[in-house]
Amino acid sequence: METWNELKDSQPKVVQLLQRSLEKDRLAHAYLFEGSKGTGKKQIAFQLAKSFLCKKNEGAEPCLVCADCKRIDHRNHPDVHIIEPEGLSIKKQQVEHLQKEFTYRGVESGKKVYIVDQADKMTASAANSLLKFLEEPTAPTLAVLMTERASSVLPTIQSRSQQLSFSPLPREKFIERLEKEGISRTLSTLIAGLTQSYEEAIALMESDWIAQARSVVIQLNEELYERPHQVFLTIQDKWIPTFKERRELELGLDMILLWLRDLLYTQVGKTDQLVFADQQTLLEQQALSSSQEKTSQSMSFVLEAKRHLSANVNPQLVMEKLFFSIQEG
């Protein structure tokens, strides 16, 4: 549980605006939070819900210990409703169910909050149904819509919401936050290159998968230059057993991309920005036997592999084609 002042470290402009609105009792009835994954949209949405519903708050700060605050933390507050995609989209029936819930008076305080995650994935009929809520808000009601692509949200919904843009969390601050959780600098730096989601970062550390995956990526990149004949055997024996799920495969390709970026940084003398800093000697050796142009081309091959993976191409074929392309240059 964090305070507004602690959240301000990651999103100073957004938090300052919301704090000021809370202190002056001038909250908008609807907000549209826009920002990439991991920028804290959901965290701040629930913090806003606490401030809105907490009966013991001091100014903008919720008490964090009352029943309302604790229920919101545990995602089981009867007056906080969450809508998120069922399958690929948010459907009209989900919004209609929400409308029905809002015909009843708030269980605890008369106030109600609804949070729409991935609002850009509403179907046209769902978005039009939700629009009625925004045009005729049932006071006191607070709506928070979250999206990575505000431009894909119905323009009339955008115009009836106060839009707040979330900035990416500064890399070094995120690394420091992970280190405070006892995660080594080596893995914290890698994770910060893969995600800006604190929750996802902690989930990655719940097992030793991330450390194993990192080792496989280093091994493959080392063999690419020193033992190229071994690469395809390692893909079969190490890569496929380690990267089993779709998300793991995506992360694996992202790690290869980070390695190539480190190689490019090494080639241009920016070694203070390395993700694989403990592998600097190896990166320097590879930098001598490769050009910046070839490294950039290899990065484009990885991006192509990611597109093939999204198209459900066999993962082993994706990897074999990727490293064949890099070897051929």
Rank of each mutant, 00 (worst) to 15 (best):
T189M: 09
S167L: 05
Q43G: 00
V14F: 07
N312G: 12
S167P: 01
I326Y: 02
Q327D: 04
G106N: 06
Q273H: 06
S109T: 13
I191S: 07
E222S: 14
L251Y: 03
L317R: 09
V217T: 14
V65H: 11
V231T: 03
T186H: 12
T186K: 15
T242I: 04
V231A: 04
S184E: 01
T281W: 07
T3E: 06
K111E: 04
E23W: 10
V113C: 03
D68W: 00
L164D: 13
G106H: 02
Q316T: 10
A67S: 13
G40E: 06
H77Y: 01
S291E: 12
T281Q: 11
K173I: 04
K50Y: 07
P241W: 02
R246F: 15
V268R: 12
K173W: 01
E320T: 02
K92E: 13
N314H: 13
A192I: 02
E108Q: 03
D237W: 03
S21E: 14
A150T: 02
V216E: 00
E245A: 15
S152C: 12
G106R: 00
V217K: 11
V15D: 02
L178W: 01
C69F: 03
S151T: 09
L88C: 08
E108N: 02
V153G: 08
S310L: 12
T271G: 12
I326E: 02
S89W: 02
K270M: 14
E58K: 08
R105P: 01
L258P: 03
N57Q: 14
K294Y: 15
E58Q: 09
A124F: 11
L32N: 00
L249A: 13
Q118G: 12
W4K: 06
E23S: 10
T138K: 13
E245K: 14
S290C: 08
A203T: 11
Y198P: 01
W4N: 07
W259Y: 11
P12F: 08
S325R: 05
E223H: 15
K92M: 12
F301R: 11
S167N: 09
T242V: 07
G87I: 03
L98Y: 09
Q292F: 09
A49L: 01
E200S: 09
N128W: 00
A139K: 11
H229M: 13
Q196L: 06
V275H: 05
G40V: 08
K111N: 12
D262L: 07
V107I: 14
Q273K: 07
E250I: 08
Y265S: 11
E199M: 05
F276L: 06
Q47H: 15
R246C: 09
L32F: 00
L190Y: 04
R307Q: 14
G269C: 04
Q16H: 14
S289N: 15
T242R: 04
G193F: 05
V268Q: 13
D9L: 11
T281Y: 08
L257F: 14
E293F: 12
L257D: 09
L263W: 01
L53C: 08
D237Q: 15
R20Y: 12
F324N: 10
Q292A: 15
K55E: 15
G252C: 05
D68N: 10
Q279W: 00
L251E: 01
K132A: 10
K13A: 13
A28I: 06
K41W: 14
P140Y: 05
K56W: 07
T103A: 10
V144W: 00
F52E: 11
Q212F: 02
L317T: 14
Y225V: 12
L194A: 07
E181K: 15
G40P: 05
